[in-house]
Design a protein around this nucleic acid. Structure first.
Length: 460
RNA sequence: GCCGGGGUCGCCUAGCCUGGUAGGGCGCCGGCCUGCUAAGCCGGUGGGGGAAACCCCGCGCGGGUUCAAAUCCCGCCCCCGGCGCCA
Protein backbone atom coordinates (compact mmCIF):
# COMPACT_ATOMS: atom_id res chain seq x y z
CA UNK A 1 0.00 0.00 0.00
CA UNK A 2 1.66 3.11 -1.16
CA UNK A 3 0.51 6.44 0.14
CA UNK A 4 1.20 9.16 -2.39
CA UNK A 5 2.41 11.57 0.28
CA UNK A 6 4.84 9.10 1.86
CA UNK A 7 6.13 8.19 -1.58
CA UNK A 8 6.71 11.84 -2.38
CA UNK A 9 8.36 12.39 1.01
CA UNK A 10 10.89 9.66 0.31
CA UNK A 11 11.46 10.24 -3.37
CA UNK A 12 11.21 13.99 -3.68
CA UNK A 13 10.93 15.85 -0.39
CA UNK A 14 11.58 19.20 -2.05
CA UNK A 15 8.51 18.73 -4.20
CA UNK A 16 6.46 17.93 -1.12
CA UNK A 17 7.81 21.06 0.53
CA UNK A 18 6.50 23.13 -2.38
CA UNK A 19 3.01 21.85 -1.65
CA UNK A 20 3.33 22.60 2.05
CA UNK A 21 4.66 26.04 1.25
CA UNK A 22 1.67 26.71 -1.01
CA UNK A 23 -0.50 26.22 2.06
CA UNK A 24 1.62 28.70 3.98
CA UNK A 25 2.45 25.98 6.46
CA UNK A 26 5.86 25.40 8.01
CA UNK A 27 8.02 23.32 5.66
CA UNK A 28 9.80 22.05 8.74
CA UNK A 29 7.17 19.34 9.10
CA UNK A 30 8.55 17.78 5.91
CA UNK A 31 12.13 17.73 7.20
CA UNK A 32 10.92 16.35 10.50
CA UNK A 33 8.91 13.57 8.88
CA UNK A 34 11.75 12.71 6.51
CA UNK A 35 14.30 12.57 9.31
CA UNK A 36 12.12 10.38 11.52
CA UNK A 37 11.24 8.08 8.64
CA UNK A 38 14.91 7.53 7.83
CA UNK A 39 15.87 6.91 11.43
CA UNK A 40 12.97 4.56 11.85
CA UNK A 41 13.89 2.54 8.79
CA UNK A 42 17.51 2.26 9.89
CA UNK A 43 16.68 1.08 13.37
CA UNK A 44 14.02 -1.26 12.01
CA UNK A 45 16.60 -3.00 9.80
CA UNK A 46 18.93 -3.49 12.75
CA UNK A 47 16.18 -4.93 14.87
CA UNK A 48 15.00 -7.24 12.14
CA UNK A 49 18.51 -8.63 11.92
CA UNK A 50 18.55 -9.33 15.64
CA UNK A 51 15.13 -10.92 15.48
CA UNK A 52 16.34 -13.11 12.66
CA UNK A 53 19.25 -14.36 14.77
CA UNK A 54 16.91 -15.06 17.61
CA UNK A 55 14.48 -16.92 15.39
CA UNK A 56 17.28 -19.12 14.05
CA UNK A 57 18.43 -20.03 17.55
CA UNK A 58 14.91 -20.61 18.71
CA UNK A 59 14.33 -23.09 15.94
CA UNK A 60 17.55 -24.89 16.78
CA UNK A 61 16.49 -25.27 20.39
CA UNK A 62 13.47 -27.32 19.44
CA UNK A 63 15.81 -29.94 17.95
CA UNK A 64 18.41 -29.96 20.71
CA UNK A 65 18.74 -31.84 23.99
CA UNK A 66 20.66 -31.51 27.25
CA UNK A 67 23.65 -29.19 27.61
CA UNK A 68 23.56 -27.99 24.00
CA UNK A 69 20.00 -26.96 24.48
CA UNK A 70 20.77 -25.08 27.70
CA UNK A 71 23.62 -23.28 25.96
CA UNK A 72 21.37 -22.08 23.13
CA UNK A 73 18.65 -20.97 25.53
CA UNK A 74 21.18 -18.85 27.34
CA UNK A 75 22.28 -17.34 24.02
CA UNK A 76 18.69 -16.59 23.08
CA UNK A 77 18.08 -14.87 26.39
CA UNK A 78 21.08 -12.62 25.87
CA UNK A 79 19.78 -11.63 22.45
CA UNK A 80 16.40 -10.88 23.95
CA UNK A 81 17.71 -8.45 26.52
CA UNK A 82 19.53 -6.61 23.74
CA UNK A 83 16.39 -6.60 21.63
CA UNK A 84 14.33 -5.24 24.46
CA UNK A 85 16.49 -2.14 24.57
CA UNK A 86 16.34 -1.64 20.80
CA UNK A 87 12.63 -2.21 20.63
CA UNK A 88 11.89 0.34 23.26
CA UNK A 89 13.76 2.86 21.16
CA UNK A 90 11.92 1.72 18.06
CA UNK A 91 8.54 2.15 19.70
CA UNK A 92 9.36 5.69 20.66
CA UNK A 93 10.67 6.46 17.21
CA UNK A 94 7.68 4.83 15.56
CA UNK A 95 5.24 6.92 17.56
CA UNK A 96 7.08 10.09 16.63
CA UNK A 97 7.27 9.09 12.98
CA UNK A 98 3.58 8.27 12.92
CA UNK A 99 2.76 11.60 14.48
CA UNK A 100 4.93 13.43 11.95
CA UNK A 101 3.34 11.59 9.03
CA UNK A 102 -0.17 12.31 10.27
CA UNK A 103 0.68 16.00 10.34
CA UNK A 104 1.44 16.09 6.64
CA UNK A 105 -1.29 17.76 4.60
CA UNK A 106 -2.43 16.58 1.22
CA UNK A 107 -0.73 17.87 -1.91
CA UNK A 108 -2.24 20.96 -3.54
CA UNK A 109 -3.76 20.39 -6.96
CA UNK A 110 -2.31 22.49 -9.78
CA UNK A 111 -5.63 24.21 -10.42
CA UNK A 112 -5.83 25.61 -6.87
CA UNK A 113 -5.20 29.36 -6.59
CA UNK A 114 -2.18 30.05 -4.41
CA UNK A 115 -2.61 32.49 -1.54
CA UNK A 116 -2.49 32.63 2.25
CA UNK A 117 -6.18 33.17 3.02
CA UNK A 118 -9.73 33.29 1.73
CA UNK A 119 -9.17 36.62 0.00
CA UNK A 120 -7.36 34.58 -2.66
CA UNK A 121 -10.35 32.30 -3.23
CA UNK A 122 -11.27 32.43 -6.88
CA UNK A 123 -14.90 32.55 -8.06
CA UNK A 124 -15.20 30.40 -11.17
CA UNK A 125 -18.88 30.77 -12.06
CA UNK A 126 -22.03 32.54 -11.02
CA UNK A 127 -25.67 31.53 -11.20
CA UNK A 128 -28.95 33.34 -10.71
CA UNK A 129 -30.13 36.89 -10.49
CA UNK A 130 -29.35 38.21 -7.02
CA UNK A 131 -31.43 40.85 -5.34
CA UNK A 132 -29.06 43.64 -4.51
CA UNK A 133 -30.02 46.44 -2.15
CA UNK A 134 -28.83 49.79 -3.46
CA UNK A 135 -26.62 50.22 -0.40
CA UNK A 136 -24.73 47.04 -1.21
CA UNK A 137 -24.26 47.67 -4.91
CA UNK A 138 -20.61 48.59 -4.57
CA UNK A 139 -19.69 45.52 -2.58
CA UNK A 140 -21.75 43.34 -4.88
CA UNK A 141 -19.65 44.60 -7.76
CA UNK A 142 -16.55 43.90 -5.71
CA UNK A 143 -17.58 40.27 -5.41
CA UNK A 144 -18.40 39.82 -9.09
CA UNK A 145 -16.79 42.28 -11.48
CA UNK A 146 -13.44 42.18 -9.73
CA UNK A 147 -13.14 38.63 -10.98
CA UNK A 148 -14.25 39.54 -14.49
CA UNK A 149 -17.86 38.36 -14.17
CA UNK A 150 -20.85 40.37 -15.30
CA UNK A 151 -23.68 39.14 -13.12
CA UNK A 152 -27.20 40.29 -13.82
CA UNK A 153 -28.98 41.50 -10.69
CA UNK A 154 -32.22 42.95 -9.47
CA UNK A 155 -31.74 46.25 -7.72
CA UNK A 156 -34.01 46.77 -4.71
CA UNK A 157 -34.44 49.94 -2.73
CA UNK A 158 -35.55 48.29 0.53
CA UNK A 159 -33.05 46.63 2.80
CA UNK A 160 -33.97 43.03 3.54
CA UNK A 161 -34.09 42.02 7.19
CA UNK A 162 -31.18 39.78 8.23
CA UNK A 163 -31.89 36.07 8.60
CA UNK A 164 -31.46 36.16 12.39
CA UNK A 165 -34.04 38.91 12.91
CA UNK A 166 -36.33 37.36 10.33
CA UNK A 167 -36.34 34.10 12.23
CA UNK A 168 -36.89 35.47 15.71
CA UNK A 169 -38.52 38.88 15.36
CA UNK A 170 -40.41 38.93 12.08
CA UNK A 171 -41.52 35.31 11.84
CA UNK A 172 -41.21 34.46 15.53
CA UNK A 173 -40.20 30.92 14.68
CA UNK A 174 -36.91 30.66 16.47
CA UNK A 175 -35.59 31.30 19.94
CA UNK A 176 -31.83 31.48 20.39
CA UNK A 177 -32.08 33.40 23.65
CA UNK A 178 -33.80 30.58 25.50
CA UNK A 179 -31.56 28.03 23.81
CA UNK A 180 -28.62 30.09 24.98
CA UNK A 181 -29.82 29.79 28.54
CA UNK A 182 -30.39 26.07 28.48
CA UNK A 183 -27.58 24.96 26.20
CA UNK A 184 -25.39 27.93 25.34
CA UNK A 185 -24.80 30.28 22.47
CA UNK A 186 -24.99 28.87 18.94
CA UNK A 187 -27.90 26.65 19.92
CA UNK A 188 -31.49 27.27 18.87
CA UNK A 189 -35.07 26.30 19.18
CA UNK A 190 -36.92 26.29 15.88
CA UNK A 191 -40.70 26.14 15.62
CA UNK A 192 -43.42 25.09 13.21
CA UNK A 193 -42.90 26.31 9.62
CA UNK A 194 -39.12 26.51 9.98
CA UNK A 195 -38.95 22.94 11.25
CA UNK A 196 -41.05 21.79 8.30
CA UNK A 197 -38.71 23.73 6.06
CA UNK A 198 -35.69 22.01 7.62
CA UNK A 199 -37.22 18.60 6.98
CA UNK A 200 -38.32 19.51 3.47
CA UNK A 201 -34.83 20.63 2.53
CA UNK A 202 -33.36 17.34 3.66
CA UNK A 203 -36.03 15.35 1.85
CA UNK A 204 -35.43 17.41 -1.30
CA UNK A 205 -31.71 16.65 -1.28
CA UNK A 206 -32.23 12.99 -0.44
CA UNK A 207 -34.77 12.63 -3.22
CA UNK A 208 -32.52 14.28 -5.78
CA UNK A 209 -29.41 12.24 -4.99
CA UNK A 210 -31.05 8.87 -4.52
CA UNK A 211 -32.72 9.45 -7.91
CA UNK A 212 -29.21 9.68 -9.32
CA UNK A 213 -28.32 6.31 -7.89
CA UNK A 214 -26.57 7.39 -4.71
CA UNK A 215 -27.04 4.92 -1.85
CA UNK A 216 -28.92 6.47 1.06
CA UNK A 217 -27.25 6.08 4.44
CA UNK A 218 -28.18 6.86 8.02
CA UNK A 219 -24.77 6.61 9.68
CA UNK A 220 -23.48 6.50 13.26
CA UNK A 221 -23.46 9.94 14.86
CA UNK A 222 -20.46 9.03 16.99
CA UNK A 223 -17.16 7.41 16.12
CA UNK A 224 -14.17 6.04 17.97
CA UNK A 225 -11.01 8.17 18.04
CA UNK A 226 -9.21 5.91 15.58
CA UNK A 227 -11.75 6.69 12.88
CA UNK A 228 -12.13 10.38 13.70
CA UNK A 229 -8.37 10.66 13.38
CA UNK A 230 -8.64 8.91 10.05
CA UNK A 231 -10.85 11.56 8.51
CA UNK A 232 -9.71 14.90 9.85
CA UNK A 233 -6.56 16.79 10.77
CA UNK A 234 -5.64 17.88 14.26
CA UNK A 235 -6.76 21.51 13.77
CA UNK A 236 -10.26 20.41 12.82
CA UNK A 237 -10.31 17.92 15.65
CA UNK A 238 -9.50 20.64 18.17
CA UNK A 239 -11.92 23.22 16.76
CA UNK A 240 -14.88 21.07 15.88
CA UNK A 241 -15.15 17.78 17.71
CA UNK A 242 -17.17 17.03 20.82
CA UNK A 243 -16.18 14.08 22.97
CA UNK A 244 -18.42 11.82 25.02
CA UNK A 245 -17.05 11.87 28.53
CA UNK A 246 -15.61 8.62 29.81
CA UNK A 247 -15.91 6.83 26.49
CA UNK A 248 -13.88 6.51 23.36
CA UNK A 249 -16.58 8.22 21.34
CA UNK A 250 -16.72 11.49 19.43
CA UNK A 251 -19.72 13.23 17.88
CA UNK A 252 -19.40 13.53 14.12
CA UNK A 253 -19.10 17.01 12.66
CA UNK A 254 -20.59 15.75 9.41
CA UNK A 255 -21.82 12.48 7.95
CA UNK A 256 -18.64 12.59 5.85
CA UNK A 257 -16.81 11.20 8.86
CA UNK A 258 -18.97 8.13 9.30
CA UNK A 259 -19.29 7.59 5.58
CA UNK A 260 -15.51 7.58 5.13
CA UNK A 261 -15.28 5.03 7.95
CA UNK A 262 -17.88 2.81 6.27
CA UNK A 263 -15.19 0.97 4.30
CA UNK A 264 -12.26 1.34 6.71
CA UNK A 265 -9.82 -1.58 6.56
CA UNK A 266 -11.53 -2.97 3.48
CA UNK A 267 -10.47 -4.04 0.03
CA UNK A 268 -12.80 -2.96 -2.73
CA UNK A 269 -12.62 -4.70 -6.11
CA UNK A 270 -12.05 -2.04 -8.75
CA UNK A 271 -15.21 -2.94 -10.65
CA UNK A 272 -17.24 -1.92 -7.59
CA UNK A 273 -15.95 1.64 -7.83
CA UNK A 274 -17.03 4.34 -7.72
CA UNK A 275 -19.21 3.81 -4.64
CA UNK A 276 -21.57 6.75 -4.28
CA UNK A 277 -23.35 7.50 -1.03
CA UNK A 278 -25.69 10.13 0.27
CA UNK A 279 -25.76 10.34 4.06
CA UNK A 280 -28.11 12.25 6.30
CA UNK A 281 -27.22 13.12 9.85
CA UNK A 282 -27.05 15.80 12.47
CA UNK A 283 -23.70 17.54 12.63
CA UNK A 284 -22.08 18.63 15.87
CA UNK A 285 -19.44 21.33 15.88
CA UNK A 286 -17.71 23.17 18.65
CA UNK A 287 -16.88 26.15 16.43
CA UNK A 288 -14.02 26.79 18.82
CA UNK A 289 -12.03 28.83 16.33
CA UNK A 290 -14.94 30.99 15.25
CA UNK A 291 -14.68 33.66 17.93
CA UNK A 292 -17.55 36.10 17.60
CA UNK A 293 -18.22 35.46 13.96
CA UNK A 294 -21.88 34.92 13.01
CA UNK A 295 -22.91 34.81 16.63
CA UNK A 296 -26.49 35.80 15.85
CA UNK A 297 -29.02 33.48 14.36
CA UNK A 298 -28.56 30.01 12.96
CA UNK A 299 -25.87 30.52 10.34
CA UNK A 300 -23.02 29.12 12.43
CA UNK A 301 -24.30 26.73 15.09
CA UNK A 302 -23.23 23.77 17.20
CA UNK A 303 -25.71 21.40 15.62
CA UNK A 304 -27.59 21.18 12.37
CA UNK A 305 -28.79 18.63 9.85
CA UNK A 306 -26.97 17.90 6.68
CA UNK A 307 -27.32 15.72 3.64
CA UNK A 308 -23.84 14.78 2.52
CA UNK A 309 -22.49 13.23 -0.67
CA UNK A 310 -19.56 10.86 -0.41
CA UNK A 311 -17.67 8.89 -3.06
CA UNK A 312 -15.02 6.18 -2.95
CA UNK A 313 -13.25 6.33 -6.31
CA UNK A 314 -10.44 4.95 -8.41
CA UNK A 315 -7.63 7.51 -8.42
CA UNK A 316 -7.92 8.14 -12.15
CA UNK A 317 -11.60 9.03 -11.78
CA UNK A 318 -11.58 11.25 -8.74
CA UNK A 319 -11.14 14.61 -10.47
CA UNK A 320 -14.09 14.00 -12.79
CA UNK A 321 -16.18 12.83 -9.85
CA UNK A 322 -15.37 16.00 -7.95
CA UNK A 323 -17.02 17.92 -10.79
CA UNK A 324 -20.01 15.60 -10.51
CA UNK A 325 -20.36 16.34 -6.79
CA UNK A 326 -20.24 20.10 -7.17
CA UNK A 327 -22.65 20.00 -10.07
CA UNK A 328 -25.07 17.88 -7.99
CA UNK A 329 -24.96 20.56 -5.33
CA UNK A 330 -25.44 23.24 -7.95
CA UNK A 331 -28.50 21.45 -9.28
CA UNK A 332 -30.00 21.56 -5.80
CA UNK A 333 -29.39 25.28 -5.43
CA UNK A 334 -30.58 26.00 -8.95
CA UNK A 335 -33.70 24.06 -8.04
CA UNK A 336 -34.17 26.31 -5.04
CA UNK A 337 -33.45 29.28 -7.24
CA UNK A 338 -30.91 30.70 -4.83
CA UNK A 339 -28.31 32.87 -6.57
CA UNK A 340 -24.83 31.51 -5.99
CA UNK A 341 -21.26 31.43 -7.06
CA UNK A 342 -18.78 28.56 -7.03
CA UNK A 343 -15.41 29.40 -5.56
CA UNK A 344 -12.10 27.60 -6.00
CA UNK A 345 -10.62 27.74 -2.49
CA UNK A 346 -7.11 29.16 -2.15
CA UNK A 347 -4.23 26.93 -1.05
CA UNK A 348 -3.83 28.65 2.31
CA UNK A 349 -7.53 28.28 3.09
CA UNK A 350 -7.70 24.55 2.24
CA UNK A 351 -8.06 22.06 5.06
CA UNK A 352 -5.17 19.61 5.37
CA UNK A 353 -7.14 16.65 3.97
CA UNK A 354 -8.22 18.32 0.73
CA UNK A 355 -6.14 18.56 -2.44
CA UNK A 356 -8.77 20.88 -3.86
CA UNK A 357 -11.97 22.38 -2.58
CA UNK A 358 -14.93 24.17 -4.11
CA UNK A 359 -17.34 26.16 -2.01
CA UNK A 360 -20.80 27.05 -3.21
CA UNK A 361 -21.77 30.42 -1.77
CA UNK A 362 -25.22 31.93 -2.04
CA UNK A 363 -25.84 35.63 -2.19
CA UNK A 364 -27.17 36.93 1.13
CA UNK A 365 -29.18 40.08 0.34
CA UNK A 366 -29.21 41.38 3.92
CA UNK A 367 -25.47 40.99 4.36
CA UNK A 368 -24.40 41.99 0.89
CA UNK A 369 -22.09 39.00 0.80
CA UNK A 370 -21.78 35.62 -0.81
CA UNK A 371 -21.70 33.09 2.03
CA UNK A 372 -20.71 29.43 2.10
CA UNK A 373 -23.49 26.87 1.81
CA UNK A 374 -21.64 23.90 0.35
CA UNK A 375 -18.12 22.58 0.57
CA UNK A 376 -16.87 20.03 -1.94
CA UNK A 377 -13.47 18.37 -1.62
CA UNK A 378 -11.28 15.83 -3.33
CA UNK A 379 -9.29 14.30 -0.51
CA UNK A 380 -7.41 11.89 -2.86
CA UNK A 381 -5.75 9.18 -0.75
CA UNK A 382 -5.28 11.23 2.44
CA UNK A 383 -8.18 9.63 4.30
CA UNK A 384 -7.77 6.27 2.57
CA UNK A 385 -4.22 5.96 3.90
CA UNK A 386 -5.34 6.60 7.45
CA UNK A 387 -8.36 4.34 7.23
CA UNK A 388 -6.67 1.66 5.08
CA UNK A 389 -9.23 1.70 2.31
CA UNK A 390 -7.87 -0.03 -0.74
CA UNK A 391 -8.96 -1.13 -4.16
CA UNK A 392 -7.81 -4.23 -5.96
CA UNK A 393 -6.84 -3.96 -9.61
CA UNK A 394 -7.88 -7.14 -11.38
CA UNK A 395 -4.89 -6.97 -13.68
CA UNK A 396 -2.14 -8.35 -11.48
CA UNK A 397 -4.15 -8.25 -8.24
CA UNK A 398 -2.50 -4.95 -7.32
CA UNK A 399 -3.71 -3.16 -4.22
CA UNK A 400 -3.71 0.60 -3.97
CA UNK A 401 -5.43 3.30 -1.98
CA UNK A 402 -8.79 4.60 -3.14
CA UNK A 403 -9.60 8.27 -3.42
CA UNK A 404 -12.36 9.74 -1.29
CA UNK A 405 -14.47 12.79 -2.08
CA UNK A 406 -17.12 14.58 -0.13
CA UNK A 407 -19.55 17.38 -0.68
CA UNK A 408 -22.43 18.98 1.08
CA UNK A 409 -25.76 18.48 -0.63
CA UNK A 410 -27.84 20.60 1.74
CA UNK A 411 -26.99 21.88 5.20
CA UNK A 412 -30.37 22.64 6.72
CA UNK A 413 -29.97 25.70 8.93
CA UNK A 414 -27.60 27.47 6.62
CA UNK A 415 -29.83 26.98 3.63
CA UNK A 416 -32.74 28.26 5.70
CA UNK A 417 -30.85 31.49 6.37
CA UNK A 418 -30.37 31.90 2.65
CA UNK A 419 -34.03 31.29 1.94
CA UNK A 420 -35.07 33.76 4.66
CA UNK A 421 -33.08 36.49 2.96
CA UNK A 422 -33.54 35.65 -0.71
CA UNK A 423 -37.25 34.83 -0.59
CA UNK A 424 -38.17 37.70 1.67
CA UNK A 425 -40.78 40.19 0.48
CA UNK A 426 -40.85 43.79 1.70
CA UNK A 427 -43.80 42.95 3.99
CA UNK A 428 -41.84 40.21 5.75
CA UNK A 429 -43.50 37.28 4.00
CA UNK A 430 -41.10 34.51 3.01
CA UNK A 431 -42.10 32.74 -0.16
CA UNK A 432 -41.33 29.04 -0.17
CA UNK A 433 -39.19 27.80 -3.07
CA UNK A 434 -41.39 25.84 -5.45
CA UNK A 435 -39.07 22.84 -5.38
CA UNK A 436 -39.82 22.31 -1.69
CA UNK A 437 -43.60 22.34 -1.85
CA UNK A 438 -43.76 18.69 -2.82
CA UNK A 439 -41.98 17.77 0.41
CA UNK A 440 -44.26 19.93 2.55
CA UNK A 441 -47.40 18.53 1.01
CA UNK A 442 -47.69 15.44 3.29
CA UNK A 443 -48.02 17.60 6.42
CA UNK A 444 -51.37 19.22 7.16
CA UNK A 445 -49.90 22.11 9.04
CA UNK A 446 -46.83 22.67 6.91
CA UNK A 447 -46.72 25.92 4.93
CA UNK A 448 -47.07 25.36 1.20
CA UNK A 449 -46.64 28.75 -0.48
CA UNK A 450 -45.27 31.20 2.04
CA UNK A 451 -44.29 31.70 5.65
CA UNK A 452 -46.06 34.64 7.23
CA UNK A 453 -44.86 37.06 9.89
CA UNK A 454 -46.15 36.53 13.38
CA UNK A 455 -49.30 38.49 14.13
CA UNK A 456 -48.61 40.85 16.99
CA UNK A 457 -51.93 41.56 18.62
CA UNK A 458 -50.90 44.56 20.61
CA UNK A 459 -48.55 46.08 18.04
CA UNK A 460 -49.19 49.52 16.65
C1' G B 1 -25.55 -5.78 32.71
C1' C B 2 -25.03 -11.32 33.55
C1' C B 3 -24.03 -16.46 31.59
C1' G B 4 -22.36 -19.36 27.45
C1' G B 5 -20.20 -19.78 22.37
C1' G B 6 -17.18 -17.34 18.86
C1' G B 7 -13.48 -13.67 15.96
C1' U B 8 -7.55 -17.42 11.72
C1' C B 9 -5.08 -14.60 4.52
C1' G B 10 -10.59 -11.00 -0.04
C1' C B 11 -14.61 -15.03 1.63
C1' C B 12 -15.31 -20.00 4.13
C1' U B 13 -12.67 -23.23 7.22
C1' A B 14 -8.64 -26.66 9.95
C1' G B 15 -5.17 -25.95 13.77
C1' C B 16 -6.18 -24.28 20.11
C1' C B 17 -7.32 -29.31 24.69
C1' U B 18 -1.38 -31.48 24.41
C1' G B 19 3.19 -24.32 22.63
C1' G B 20 7.98 -25.57 18.04
C1' U B 21 8.02 -22.25 10.31
C1' A B 22 -0.59 -21.40 9.78
C1' G B 23 -2.94 -26.17 6.30
C1' G B 24 -7.25 -26.78 3.04
C1' G B 25 -11.46 -24.95 -0.03
C1' C B 26 -13.66 -20.82 -2.83
C1' G B 27 -12.69 -16.43 -5.40
C1' C B 28 -9.12 -13.70 -7.96
C1' C B 29 -4.22 -13.02 -10.80
C1' G B 30 -0.42 -15.27 -14.03
C1' G B 31 1.02 -19.44 -16.87
C1' C B 32 0.52 -24.45 -19.24
C1' C B 33 -2.60 -27.68 -21.90
C1' U B 34 -6.75 -28.53 -24.88
C1' G B 35 -8.70 -26.72 -32.56
C1' C B 36 -13.56 -23.09 -29.20
C1' U B 37 -15.65 -23.42 -24.32
C1' A B 38 -15.65 -26.03 -19.98
C1' A B 39 -12.63 -29.12 -17.27
C1' G B 40 -7.60 -30.19 -15.87
C1' C B 41 -2.51 -29.01 -14.32
C1' C B 42 1.43 -25.52 -12.22
C1' G B 43 2.56 -21.08 -9.62
C1' G B 44 0.89 -16.69 -7.13
C1' U B 45 -2.65 -14.29 -3.96
C1' G B 46 -1.65 -9.64 3.99
C1' G B 47 1.73 -5.52 5.89
C1' G B 48 6.73 -3.66 6.30
C1' G B 49 12.30 -3.08 5.62
C1' G B 50 15.94 -3.75 1.69
C1' A B 51 19.07 -1.87 -4.77
C1' A B 52 18.74 -7.03 -4.44
C1' A B 53 19.43 -11.67 -2.23
C1' C B 54 16.61 -12.01 1.52
C1' C B 55 14.55 -10.86 6.11
C1' C B 56 10.98 -9.14 9.76
C1' C B 57 6.00 -8.81 11.29
C1' G B 58 0.98 -10.76 10.82
C1' C B 59 -4.41 -15.58 13.55
C1' G B 60 -9.99 -9.12 16.64
C1' C B 61 -6.91 -5.23 19.85
C1' G B 62 -3.40 -4.59 24.00
C1' G B 63 -0.46 -6.75 27.77
C1' G B 64 1.82 -11.21 30.32
C1' U B 65 4.31 -16.27 30.75
C1' U B 66 8.19 -18.81 27.56
C1' C B 67 14.32 -19.77 24.11
C1' A B 68 9.54 -20.19 21.36
C1' A B 69 2.30 -18.27 21.59
C1' A B 70 -3.08 -18.80 16.64
C1' U B 71 -2.33 -22.29 20.84
C1' C B 72 -1.50 -20.90 27.90
C1' C B 73 -2.92 -16.40 31.34
C1' C B 74 -5.09 -11.23 32.08
C1' G B 75 -7.74 -6.80 30.23
C1' C B 76 -10.56 -4.54 26.25
C1' C B 77 -13.51 -4.44 21.54
C1' C B 78 -16.90 -6.79 18.34
C1' C B 79 -20.35 -10.86 16.67
C1' C B 80 -23.94 -15.02 17.87
C1' G B 81 -27.34 -17.45 21.56
C1' G B 82 -29.89 -17.24 26.39
C1' C B 83 -31.42 -14.25 30.73
C1' G B 84 -32.31 -9.44 32.85
C1' C B 85 -33.44 -4.25 32.06
C1' C B 86 -35.51 -0.58 28.86
C1' A B 87 -37.27 3.23 24.74
Amino acid sequence: MSWSILKLLRENPDELKKHVKKRFMDEGIVDEALKLDLEWRKLLSEIQELRHKHNVISREISRLQGAEREEKIKEAKELLSLLEEYEKKLNELEAKREEALLKLPNIVHDSVPVGPDDSYNLPIRFYGRPRVWTGYLDQFRQQTERYGFKVEYELIDWKPVGHADMLELVLGMGNTVKAGEVAGSRFYYLFNDIVFLDMALLAYAIDHLTSKGYTLVLPPYMLRFKYIQGVIDYATFKDAIYKIEGEDLYLIATAEHSLAALHADEEIPEEMLPLKYVGVSPCFRKEAGAGNRDLKGIFRVHQFHKVEQFIFAKPEESWDLMEELISNAEELFKGLNLPYRVVNIASGDLGAPAAKKYDLETWMPAQGLYREMVSCSNVTDWQAYRLKIRLIRRKGMIRELVHTLNSTAIASTRTITSILENYQEPDGVVVIPKALRKYLEPFNKAPKDAIHPVKREKSS
